[in-house]
Design a protein around this nucleic acid. Structure first.
Lengths: 223, 223
DNA sequence: TGCTCTTCAGTGACAATGTCACCCAACGCA
DNA sequence: TGCGTTGGGTGACATTGTCACTGAAGAGCA
């Protein structure tokens, strides 16, 4: 099922307060791209030459170490832009972050020349891009703070609560949680076992049930 | 000794390839500010409402934890712009990064309205700002990588080599080094004592002498 | 010279986290 | 039913962070 650019005009960036004129311009020059869940959107060996705006789905941006450990930097949600790619376009530095489609994803990409022109002509577009950069900077500040100063049990409790928002069942392996937090599976296992002994959660293979959210929240807030 | 804006036209941003016309525009609307060494340029309680371009000196941007630990995120050198302040202007999020003048500093600040207009009118200015954002993003990626995956002895060796570039004498307390790396003084002391036992350095109070740079480099490269 | 005060560094014990080398259990599938 | 794959458990050890001290080095001053 092919989606054409035109179909989006109503929905894309609707929440971003971009005037209709800007959206039309943007969509006029854009190309549609889509990725299947699990596919790599960008990475060290796959640097795109255009700016990407996410229409639907979610991209997980993470960084991995030589030793095979991994940490999630942030997630790009529908309506947001993925500025890291442009950052890497500009500075030729090596980096080892990659973006993975966490769900099926559709996005539009804007060639660099179109991007430049839009940024020149449209205040709102420019503001959108600047604020996208800012958001990511702030996100990364948070990650640095967590990793440098945070306790692992606190961070894990936070993630569990985030993943269990609205319900109490979480589908995630210990390894996956470790990759979120930039730690090792064994560490996650230890802490989860401790949580279970304390009655905060229940575990079965690949699934965690939050038994006592209030206390988990107290733990998470004791940052 | 007061410096007027006009005096800078030749020197400011000279290396950035901004056309003369752009520099003139920029300087026309700018205000000069200066800070003494050690003074706080910005911080959680001190969010500027304008964009800053550094003319001379160096600013250390660091983040600190509630427990009093601290980590250096990056440094802003002459000719660069400090985008973190603008990031925080845009997103109202709380953050706990601060900028300290590491040397005496002179800079120009551009009010938000002037910034917007320049960004609209001048391609080269816009490019400059985008690339400043990119640089910081990349810097932060590096910090995350170091903190999440790096070994402390390796990181410390790196810092020592950076600080001892060109000579071999470093003036720094263990506490100061700990604040660079986001760790505790005791940890730095332990590692430095180990370095000394291995003949890599010599220590006296507040001073470190690099005795064996090649081996330190091997250590630093074994990241 | 000696005294005092402040800053800087050293130490040992312990807790938290990361690493390694395993083992075992649960599940999917033929 | 057996088998291979994946997820998880465990103990030993290394590294790093925390705490509560101690002592040493320098600055200033009588």
């Amino acid at each position: 099922m092919k989606t054409t650019v035109g179909d989006w005009t109503e929905s894309f960036l609707g929440t971003r307060n971009l005037p209709r004129r800007v959206r039309d311009k943007l969509l006029h020059e854009a190309r549609v791209v889509s990725y299947k869940q699990g596919q790599q959107v960008f990475g060290p060996d796959n640097i795109p030459d255009s700016l990407m705006f996410l229409h639907a789905g979610r991209i997980r941006v993470s960084q991995s170490s030589d030793a095979g450990r991994e940490i999630v930097l942030y997630r790009v949600e529908a309506g947001e832009s993925c500025v890291l790619t442009t950052a890497c376009m500009l500075s030729e530095e090596a980096y080892n972050a990659e973006g993975i489609a966490e769900t099926d994803v559709t996005a539009i990409t804007l060639p660099k020349t179109s991007f430049d022109r839009l940024a020149a002509e449209e205040d709102s577009f420019r503001g959108f891009v600047f604020s996208a950069y800012s958001r990511r900077l702030i996100d990364l500040l948070r990650v640095v703070d967590d990793v440098a100063f945070g306790r692992m049990d606190v961070r894990l409790a936070e993630r569990l609560l985030a993943l269990g928002e609205g319900h109490s069942e979480i589908q995630a392996t210990h390894q996956a949680l470790a990759n979120e937090l930039g730690t090792a599976r064994e560490v996650v296992s230890r802490i989860l076992n401790d949580f279970q002994k304390r009655g905060l959660i229940l575990q079965t293979r690949g699934r965690i049930t939050l038994q006592n959210k209030p206390q988990l929240e107290r733990l998470a807030d004791s940052a």
